[in-house]
């Protein structure tokens, strides 16, 4: 298994760079992971999405879908696509230290 060092911590990652163990993640890693997917500034709204995803994953064991981020997390789909262009669910999960979303929607 590949590893990478983020914010002074060496973590296991899969072949696409997603963290293997969500528990390895710290908030300090988020800006570094964001840069790797082309997002150079994390605003409060980005953080709202990241924290919602972390919370959902912890409580339900699942990465929330775009629909759930809208209906439960309160982030409109249009805005989500603006915050995380070209792959909102995948990029947000990447930055939040979760695995790659496996669903179709």
């Amino acid at each position: 298994m590949a590893t990478k060092t983020l914010a002074g911590k060496t973590v296991e990652v899969d072949e696409e760079g997603f963290l293997v163990n969500p528990d390895d993640w710290t908030e300090e890693m988020a800006p570094l992971l964001a840069e790797q997917v082309g997002i150079y500034e994390l605003t409060d709204r980005h953080w709202e999405v990241i924290r919602f995803m972390r919370k959902e994953y912890k409580e339900r064991g699942q990465i929330p879908t775009v629909r759930r981020i809208k209906n439960v997390g309160g982030i409109p789909t249009k805005e989500l696509y603006e915050l995380f262009p070209e792959g909102p669910a995948k990029k947000a999960a990447y930055i939040a230290g979760l695995g790659k979303p496996q669903g179709c929607v």
């Binding site: 775009v66 696509y81 262009p85 070209e86 792959g87 909102p88 669910a89 995948k90 179709c104 929607v105």
Partner: peptide, 11 residues
């Protein structure tokens, strides 16, 4: 619809 939405999710 699923395919169109999936496309957007992949950029």
């Amino acid at each position: 619809l699923i395919m169109a939405n999936g496309a957007r999710m992949e950029g």
